[in-house]
Design a protein around this nucleic acid. Structure first.
Lengths: 160, 160
DNA sequence: GGACCTATACTTAGGCA
DNA sequence: GTGCCTAAGTATAGGTC
């Protein structure tokens, strides 16, 4: 997330992956503890360090507390567990929806900017550049709203 | 962490605390999933939502998986070694990657169009519109490349 | 309350010693 | 591997609707 965008896939290089793991684990721990403090929530974090699968995972705020929280969680009926499930899939679906939304907005802004450019060119050259029927319609709409604004300004000055 | 520095203590205001909780929980979830992906680690996240202490906590990636990890953590032998089902997930990941790519392109085009507009306005008015330093730099770059093109054309004609 | 915005604060990828 | 640096990329506090 710096210098370069870094794709969200398993980091191939071994030492790089370990380094990133250490960095991000610390960042995550900070976030978790902040959330616990700011919002007064009971949280725990458990991570298995890669390459050390045989070893014990780390737990936050402490192994016993983490265990306590999870046991509490396991004691509820499965049905409720499912309801409370923040599933991987729904999380990904949310991300997809969000991205689609961002994309829609970016594309809409693109269209608006393009029309502005066309209008500018038309004004500069005194004639309409060669465009398709859709663009022409958009330009017409833009020109209309500009005309409207001009008339409003004129009225304002007249009333002055 | 924005607009103001926000002290690291329990947020007194009730609705503010809830809002912050929601935001940060999502941020945390994203970080957790990124860590899992990038570093190929087994992680889980369990949070009790405040004001709903009687209710069940949320767990990520899912309650059963969270429970499994913690049980493993407690060194209680687990019989079942279920295979992870990743096909659906990888499909969704592909979709996300594609969308991110599209978005990136749209945004880049966006910036280009904005600069074109600025240049047009500058040419039409004979002066640079009031813009930020970044835009000014972009305009300067654009103007540079335009100059370059002009010079190249001149050279071509001269060689003719 | 919830969705969106945006100025700032924060995190971190890639480099370097 | 360890530690530090800094440019980019993210998260989010406070606000608006």
């Amino acid at each position: 997330m710096a210098r370069k965008k870094a794709k969200l896939v398993r980091i191939a290089n071994d030492s790089t992956r370990r380094a990133t793991f250490k960095k991000r684990k610390n960042g995550l721990l900070k976030k978790v503890s902040e959330l616990a403090t700011l919002c007064n929530v009971s949280t725990c974090m458990i991570i298995y360090t890669p390459e050390e699968a045989a070893m014990q995972p780390e737990a936050w705020p402490s192994p016993p507390e983490a265990a306590r929280i999870v046991v509490q969680f396991r004691n509820i009926p499965l049905v409720e567990q499912r309801q409370k499930m923040l599933s991987q899939e729904s999380f990904l679906s949310q991300r997809i929806a969000k991205l689609e939304d961002q994309l829609r907005r970016a594309e809409r802004k693109n269209r608006e900017l393009s029309v502005s450019l066309l209008v500018n060119e038309a004004l500069a050259s005194g004639r309409l550049p060669v465009v398709g029927i859709d663009d022409a319609a958009a330009v017409a709409r833009a020109a209309d709203s500009m005309l409207k604004e001009v008339r409003e300004r004129i009225n304002k000055e007249a009333a002055w």
